[in-house]
């Protein structure tokens, strides 16, 4: 192993992670969560049309490869006149994807809050929207932290697919360095190590968040 190369490429790779991978993951996750909440509410709606729309969305997102979704948006859309840069394309594709997967988590978490909480919120005078925001979602949040963390960690790794639509994130950096130096094994293992580092830090963050949200729960 060429340790000099490992040392020389560490900063460029980490930089690709910090300026590409992480911002892409964070932005997509934030937008995806909002989308997931909307889709979850659609699915929970008593209106059969709305609930069908939510179900259809989840079905399409989960039933098609993420890579295909990326390609449809970046390479396909220009044919109907929608031409987007790599970054916006990637953020849109990943957000839509997170929206589909996280919707099921959010829906289950909302359903896990006892019916009595809705009734108590009703009794103190709240509208359904306010009940959801102040009473139900805070309790659902606690339940959904572990599964949503899973989604987020998967997303961090999935962002490597964005290299295929020309986004300069960590894996694309790795490809460039590897092609330049012809040390494929060394560079790709190094990139893998940095992905692992990111995910480990995120898992620690998950534990801390769980602990904080657990403070009002009986043990």
């Amino acid at each position: 192993m060429d340790w000099q190369l490992v040392a020389d490429s560490f900063w460029p790779l980490l930089q690709g992670g910090l300026t590409g991978t992480i911002p892409l993951a964070l932005a997509s996750f934030a937008i995806g969560l909002v989308l997931a909440l909307l889709v979850a509410l659609l699915r929970l709606s008593p209106n059969p049309v709305l609930s069908w729309i939510g179900r259809a969305y989840v079905s399409v997102i989960r039933g098609t490869p993420l890579l295909v979704q990326l390609f449809v948006i970046f390479y396909g859309m220009p044919e109907i006149g929608i031409r987007l840069d790599p970054w916006p394309s990637a953020i849109i594709a990943f957000s839509l994807n997170v929206g589909g997967y996280a919707a099921e988590v959010v829906r289950a978490a909302i359903l896990s809050v006892p019916k009595g909480q809705w009734e108590a919120a009703w009794t103190v005078g709240m509208s359904p929207v306010r009940s959801l925001g102040r009473i139900i979602l805070p309790q659902a949040a606690r339940v959904s932290v572990p599964p949503l963390s899973n989604t987020f960690i998967s997303l961090v790794k999935d962002t490597s697919l964005a290299s295929l639509i020309l986004v300069t994130e960590m894996f694309r950096k790795a490809q460039e360095i590897a092609a330049f130096s012809s040390e494929f094994l060394t560079i790709y293992i190094e990139a893998a190590f940095i992905y692992w580092l990111f995910c480990t830090v995120l898992s620690t963050g998950q534990n801390a968040l769980e602990k904080r949200l657990d403070r009002y729960v009986a043990h």
């Binding site: 009734e119 108590a120 009703w122 009794t123 103190v124 005078g125 309790q139 729960v217």
Partner: peptide, 16 residues
């Protein structure tokens, strides 16, 4: 609803 207030069998306090 606005004329009354209810006390439940299982208190249904907001746990958070």
């Amino acid at each position: 609803r606005d004329r009354s207030a209810m006390v439940f069998q299982h208190h249904n306090l907001f746990p958070h």
